[in-house]
């Protein structure tokens, strides 16, 4: 037992060391390119500048508060999408008329890049937090409705037949069979919709400067305005990191549980 724990520890340490070495190599190449290219700091910052920006931004708390504001917006906007989108998708799959009506609308709006909502939302809501939330919701809602609708519609009719012969009807059939059968594919749709929400939020934050507080996207925007290239680069890394962490913490775990139960082959990781 002790031996196995040790082994595990060694493996973790090994993979961590590998990652650090990899990162270090990338930074070295970066610094090398900087020396080689000889361009100005305004266009291409050194890794040291970027790291020191991140360090200072962390130390004075701007980065933390901006991250917190951004994540709050993301969760709020995405929650609205989920709360509307999933019931709406289910209703669409259930009622033919609703689907004929809403389906086309959804299809059209889904293809609209979310940044196209920005002019409209600025006119409607002005430079407010609500404008940002609106863009996030518009960016993620339609794909969620469409994917939920098709997830429910595509469940095998055999499940429903079997449940029928065992006496399940109506609400009970929905709760015990239709919804669980569609769940894995609904989660996939939610994951995609989350990615849309995240992209929409970044577009919105770059274009809408609100009185509601500075988010990550706004830091990026001001970085450009102040020609602070180290800030722009540093924030880009933070954005990537948030995206990755959300993916790993939120969806990877849910998918692992689904995988264990439903037992289908997982495509990634």
């Amino acid at each position: 037992m002790k031996y196995r724990l040790l082994c595990l520890d060694l493996n973790v340490v090994k993979s961590l060391l590998k990652k650090i070495a990899y990162l270090f190599a990338v930074l070295c190449i970066w610094q090398f390119l900087y020396v080689l290219g000889g361009c100005s700091d305004l266009i291409f910052p050194t890794p040291i500048q970027v790291v020191s920006f991140l360090w200072h931004a962390c130390a004075d708390g701007t980065l933390m508060s901006a991250t917190w504001i951004t994540i709050k917006r993301l969760i709020l906007g995405y929650s609205v999408s989920v709360l509307i989108g999933i019931p709406m998708g289910i209703l669409c799959s259930r009622f033919y008329i609703l689907n004929a009506f809403v389906g086309k609308l959804v299809l059209g709006l889904q293809t609209l890049p979310s940044i196209c909502w920005v002019p409209l939302t600025l006119l409607w809501f002005g430079q407010t937090d609500r404008a940002i939330l609106f863009v996030v919701t518009m960016g993620s809602l339609w794909s969620l409705i469409a994917s939920t609708e098709s997830s429910v519609r595509q469940i095998p009719s055999l499940y429903i037949k079997a449940a029928h012969t065992m006496g399940s009807r109506g609400v009970d059939l929905w709760l015990t069979v239709i919804f669980p059968a569609a769940l894995p594919s609904i989660i996939t749709g939610m994951k995609q919709s989350w990615a849309f929400a995240w992209r929409s939020l970044m577009s919105a934050e770059i274009y809408v400067s609100t009185i509601g507080g500075l988010g990550i996207g706004q830091l990026l925007h001001y970085g450009r305005e102040m020609q602070a290239m180290d800030q722009v680069m540093g924030i880009i890394f933070v954005i990537i990191a948030i995206g990755l962490i959300a993916e790993k913490v939120l969806f990877a775990n849910v998918e692992r549980i689904l995988h264990k139960r439903w037992g289908f082959i997982k495509s990634s990781n």
């Binding site: 055999l158 499940y159 037949k161 079997a162 449940a163 012969t165 065992m166 006496g167 399940s168 015990t176 069979v177 669980p180 059968a181 769940l183 139960r261 439903w262 037992g263």
Partner: peptide, 25 residues
Amino acid sequence: MMMFQEAALFPWYNVLSNVVYGLRF
């Protein structure tokens, strides 16, 4: 009760819950 060409069991339940399913009513 009906048995189908494919087993038509529910993968979101374990074996016992699948058998219990028909008894719920």
